[in-house]
Simulated scan of single mutants.
Amino acid sequence: MAPHAGPAERTRLTAAGFDAQYRRLAARAAWAAGGRGALAALTPARVLAATREVSTGRTVTLAAPVETRAGPDNPEPARHRMNGQPEERASDGLDFAMDRFAMNVHGDADSHIDALCHVIYDGTLHGGVSASSITSSGATALSIEAARDGIVGRGVLLDIPRTRGVAWLEPGDHVTLDDLTAAEAAQHVRVSEGDLLFVRVGHRRRRAELGAWPAARARAGLHPSALDFLADRRVAVLGGDGNNDTAPSSTEGVDFPVHVLAVHAMGLHLLDYLQFEELAPVCEAEGRWSFLCVIAPLRLPDATGSPVNPIAVL
Rank of each mutant, 00 (worst) to 15 (best):
R148S: 13
H112W: 11
R148E: 15
S290F: 07
D110T: 02
E252A: 12
E278V: 12
V189E: 10
S250H: 10
R233P: 06
L62Q: 00
V237Q: 00
A45G: 13
A265R: 06
T43H: 03
A63N: 04
E9R: 00
A5H: 06
A33G: 10
G84C: 08
D232K: 12
G287H: 14
P72N: 05
E76G: 05
G6P: 13
A262S: 15
W168Y: 13
R24T: 09
A215D: 09
R58L: 13
G287I: 06
R148M: 03
A296R: 08
P86F: 14
G123Q: 08
I134Q: 03
D73E: 14
S137L: 07
S132H: 00
V166M: 13
T59S: 03
D99R: 14
A20H: 02
G84R: 07
H80I: 12
N104I: 10
T163G: 10
R233N: 02
T56P: 04
P7V: 08
R100H: 10
E284Q: 09
G84M: 01
E193R: 13
P65G: 13
V152H: 11
G37H: 02
A265L: 06
D245M: 03
A33Y: 02
A215H: 04
A90C: 08
E9K: 01
N104C: 09
L180K: 07
R148P: 01
Q275S: 15
A109I: 05
S306W: 00
D241M: 07
V175W: 05
S306L: 10
R164L: 15
D241F: 11
D73I: 07
G6R: 15
A27F: 02
G93T: 04
N243K: 09
I160P: 11
L177N: 13
L180M: 02
I295M: 14
V105P: 01
R205Y: 09
R58M: 13
R148K: 14
A236T: 08
G253E: 02
E193H: 13
D195T: 14
Y121M: 02
A296Q: 06
T59I: 02
R10E: 13
P72Y: 04
R204T: 07
D245N: 15
A45Q: 12
R164H: 13
G107A: 12
V313I: 15
G211M: 11
A49E: 09
E53Y: 09
